[in-house]
Structures are given as structure tokens and as C-alpha cells.
Design a protein around this nucleic acid. Structure first.
Lengths: 116, 116
DNA sequence: TTTGCTTATCGTCGATTTACGATTATAAAG
DNA sequence: CTTTATAATCGTAAATCGACGATAAGCAAA
């Protein structure tokens, strides 16, 4: 992006957007799912599980960390990654808030709005 | 982005990522919220509500439409936008699935993983 | 048809993203 | 201290994003 006007939006909107952006790539969704399934942090095993190079996986992890969804801790020569509980609490909250605002029933019958 | 390896991931992962990506910008989150609040489609009023130019808002709407989260219908000289119920049902499902996979309780006590 | 209003698209710009290989830390072990 | 393994960073390239102004397209009324 460029020349963002982020300052003009709500803090919640920005936070939610940042979280959504972090999840806005299949590889990062996959990483999150892998970390969730293993119930614990994985290290370079992620690289083995993903069709991406080590450096690319490292970048994705960096973004997930920046979004507060993942934690990393050095453990000897390797690094352990876990889901960040605090970040996911926020994510759960903000996503829930948005979904609560969006009506479950169709505003229009799936086909045509024919509104206004 | 570039040189995506999207094909290597689950269809659900890709769909979720696409939805998340669409929500990965504060302006688009704001648009969704505006459409949800008004209980109906708004047109150029979105431009008035947002700190962005008309063309930029139009682009954001295009992306939300591409993600299946928004519908647009021509109504005379203007265009009415609504939230797309079908898309939001999918979004609700996929986000719910992911959140269900992520443990609610901390994998590590917020601070240190100390895992492996 | 011409005017006027609304929205989409085009063209452009700089910044960011995705991806990779190569290199550089970092830490345990020999 | 040197080796070995792992992960992060650097540098690069191509594609995309975000934003805007300007232009085109669509439709209704005059």
C-alpha cells in the first residue's frame, strides 16, 4: 500500500484490519492452523510442512508476530513459535464484534438488492 | 504480492485468506460497518462518510465485491451496495472454524512460551 | 439530444508484498 | 576456537496495493 490514510479510522478498525491482513494469505492461515493443531510451538518443521522456502516462512512468521498472533522464543539453536493467546483474544473479540454488526439474515435475498 | 504459491494450500485456507485480505484495510472494515449499520445499501454516501476520494472508495468496493462480501445493484444513476449474505455466511463459517481450532486458553502464559 | 449527476475505469506514482537465494547471526557441541 | 545446525536478515525482482485526478460510462430529466 502507500500513502495510507489509516489515521482517519477507528483504533478498533485499524487493529481488526491489521489482524485480518495478517490472515490475508493462505500460507499464514496454514501456519496458524499448524501451530494450533500441534498445541505447541513448532520451529523449522513449519518449513517442512509448507511449500515455501525457509526465508519466506520466516517472513510470514514475522508478520504474524507483528500482528500479535504468534509468539516466538529462542530455544537453543532453534526458535519455538506458539500462538499468542492475548492476540487471539483480541482477534476473537474484534471479529466477533464485526460479525455481530453484520446481519445474519440476508439484507437482500442473495440475488438482487432492489433496495433504497 | 508476487509469484504466489496459493495452489499449494487448501481451498478453505485460500477462501479464508481472500476474505481476510478483503477485510485487511481499515477503509474496507469501515465500509462494511457502514453498510451493516444502515441496514441497507448506500451509494455515494460512503464517499461522504469516508476520508477518501470517490475513485478510491470505488476501488475498495470492487475488492469487497470480488471477495463476495458486498453486492452492488444499479438503481438509476446511482449504485446501491449491500452486504452479500451468502458471502458473510461463508465468512462466518470459515472464521468460526479457524477460531475453533485456536485454543482459547493460553498455550503459554502470555509471556514466555518455554515450550518444546 | 443535451444536460447533469453518479459511479467505474484508466493512468500514474510510490510503497508494499511475495518469493527466492545468499549471507549473516546465534547457539550448542566438539 | 571451530564446526554444525537453525533461523533471521539482506538483496533482488516481479507483482500488487493504495491513493489520486482525470476521463469515460450510465442513466434520468429537461
Amino acid at each position: 500500500m502507500a500513502i495510507h490514510k489509516r489515521a482517519e479510522f477507528t483504533a478498533a478498525e485499524q487493529r481488526l484490519a491489521a489482524i485480518a491482513k495478517a490472515l490475508g494469505h493462505p500460507a499464514r492461515v496454514a501456519i496458524v492452523r499448524l501451530l494450533a493443531q500441534r498445541q505447541a510451538c513448532v520451529c523449522g518443521e513449519l518449513v517442512l510442512e509448507l511449500p515455501l522456502s525457509q526465508s519466506t516462512v520466516s517472513q510470514h512468521l514475522k508478520e504474524l508476530k507483528a500482528a500479535g498472533l504468534v509468539q516466538g522464543e529462542v530455544d537453543g539453536p532453534r526458535v519455538c513459535y506458539c500462538l499468542d493467546a492475548a492476540g487471539w483474544t483480541v482477534a476473537r473479540q474484534l471479529l466477533g464484534d464485526l460479525l455481530a454488526e453484520v446481519p445474519v439474515v440476508a439484507l437482500a435475498p442473495t440475488a438482487a438488492p432492489s433496495c433504497c
